[in-house]
Simulated assay, not measured.
Amino acid sequence: MHSLGDEIKGFSKNRLKKQCTRVTTLSGKRIIETWKGSLVHVVDDPDQPDGPTCGYVQDLSQDLQMGVIKPWLLLGSQDVAQDLDVLKKYKVTHILNVAYGVENVFPNEFTYRKLSILDLPETDITSYFPECFDFIDQAKQEDGVVLVHCNAGVSRAPSIIIGYLMYNEKLNFARAFSVVKNARPAVCPNPGFMEQLHKYQDSVRRQFDITHEKTD
Rank of each mutant, 00 (worst) to 15 (best):
R184Y: 07
A99Y: 00
C54V: 00
D47P: 03
T211Q: 13
L197T: 08
I136L: 06
L197W: 11
W35Q: 14
G67F: 09
S178H: 14
Y100K: 09
M66R: 02
H198N: 11
F129D: 04
V86R: 09
D119H: 02
T211K: 07
K9P: 05
E33Y: 08
D83C: 15
Y100F: 08
D143L: 00
K17T: 13
V187Q: 11
Y56R: 06
F135A: 05
D119F: 02
G51D: 02
S77K: 07
L16W: 01
I69N: 04
V23R: 04
I161F: 02
I95R: 03
V40N: 09
K13A: 06
D47Y: 02
C20Y: 00
V146I: 15
K29Y: 03
Q141W: 04
D137T: 13
L75Q: 01
V43R: 14
N97F: 06
R175Y: 08
R206N: 08
C132S: 15
T24W: 00
V187A: 07
L147T: 12
T21G: 01
G144M: 04
D124A: 10
L39G: 03
L96W: 05
Y200H: 10
L73G: 12
V40C: 13
K17S: 13
L73P: 11
D83I: 03
F208L: 09
S159N: 04
L87P: 11
F110A: 07
I136Y: 03
I161T: 08
R205P: 00
S155R: 09
M194S: 12
S116L: 05
T93A: 01
Q82N: 14
E33P: 01
Y200Q: 06
N14V: 14
T215H: 13
F177M: 12
F133H: 15
D85R: 12
A99R: 04
G192W: 12
L75Y: 06
P49W: 01
Q58E: 15
K114T: 14
P189N: 10
Y167G: 00
R184V: 11
N151Y: 07
F11H: 13
Y167E: 11
D6K: 11
T21A: 03
E195I: 05
H198A: 04
P49C: 03
Y164Q: 05
A176S: 14
Q196I: 01
K170E: 10
I8F: 08
E195A: 15
V180I: 14
K89V: 03
L16M: 07
K9N: 07
A186E: 15
F173G: 10
L147V: 12
E109Y: 02
S116G: 00
V57L: 10
V179L: 12
A157E: 07
F135E: 06
D59I: 12
P107F: 01
A183Q: 13
F133M: 03
I31V: 15
T123K: 02
I117P: 01
E103V: 07
V146Q: 03
S12V: 03
L74T: 08
V80G: 05
K9L: 13
I117T: 08
T34V: 12
V92C: 09
G55K: 06
V40L: 10
P46A: 05
F208Y: 11
F173P: 08
D83Y: 00
D209S: 13
F173N: 10
Y56G: 00
R22C: 05
V92L: 04
L39E: 15
E109D: 14
T123L: 03
D134Y: 09
H2D: 06
P46V: 14
N168A: 11
H149C: 01
R113H: 12
P52A: 09
D134I: 08
Q82M: 06
Q48H: 02
F110I: 06
H41D: 13
